[in-house]
Amino acid sequence: MAAISPPASQTSAFDRARHWLRDSRIPPVYGILVIIFLVSIVLDLVFGIDDQLYIFNRTIMTNVLVRSVALGIVAVGQTFVMIGASIDLSVAYLISLTAVGASFLMNGNPDNIWWSVLVLIGIGVVVGFVNGTLITRLKVNSLIATLGVGLIIKGLLNAAFDNFAGSVPASFQTFAYGSIGPMPISVLVLFLVVAVGWFILRRMRFGAHLYATGGSEEVARLSGLRTERILTMAHIICSTTAVLTGLFVVSRLRSGAPWVGTDGLYDLESIAATVIGGTTLSGGRGGVWGTLAGVLIFSLLDTTFNQIGINAYMKQILRGAIIILAVGFYTVRSMREAA
């Protein structure tokens, strides 16, 4: 291989592009995203039910982004806890709680919006705090702790509400349906959340400390970090994003029901999107931009499947296969790098 490699000065544009890509630290998941994008075009050309390519329809592409909002926001939070080598299965239930809580508290009255949002975020903080405390102080495995907290939320929620309760005022629905110019507000919020997430992780001390805690709890602790607080904080952030997602969902649905979170599969899908985005389950690695790509992959697939009219069950099969293949591609690739 080395024998016929060209001199360094004459590297092809392709090679230079490859090196640039490698140095730019763009998460490799964007490669998968581009591949799926191309495959979508081909599928749409071959099997599409519309005359034109949907990919070039601006409204539909915007819808792809809107589809990503709910999962995207909570997946950013999930990325935080997973960088901290934890996991949060309670988000789906918290989303339900927020959705129901928002429509119940606001009850159609625009005056109630602000304090309701604050109360709900407060609930999110408490849930995150309970999750974090269970995991860091009582040393309960994160999977079990958050599953348990999720069940508790589910139970209490279903006991109190079995139904759509109240509704959010029309002005609150601007969150989901309004737009600034061609850009829906919800998509801007998603990008804002991702950007803030990136900023916290990559520019703030808390982010550096979270990576350290996830990389090695012991090392972080011995370096004088209060790892319990850091991880608890990550859980609080995660729960807060779940509240945000809940608010988005309810503003879209106008009214929340106790099953909106679990029906949306936000728990497992946010984990899957995060992992596809390159954040490892073992912690200490990854980032929110990768997660965003993971979420976009899901919504792109959804839209493509809709456009080519694929059977819902076949869709499930394909989605499962893509999760495995994407993550498999990743790990195999990193193994080759390591070798």
Binding site: M204, R205, H209, Y211, V219, A220, L222, S223, G224, R285
Partner: peptide, 28 residues
């Protein structure tokens, strides 16, 4: 410590100043 207390996935400078990063308003 006997076993290194360093994080392989962080840079040298982040490791040396872990927990003591120079910062303003929490921004490193």
């Amino acid at each position: 410590y006997q076993e290194f207390n360093l994080l392989p996935d962080r840079t040298v400078m982040e490791n040396i100043y872990l927990g003591r990063e120079p910062h303003r308003f929490g921004i490193v």
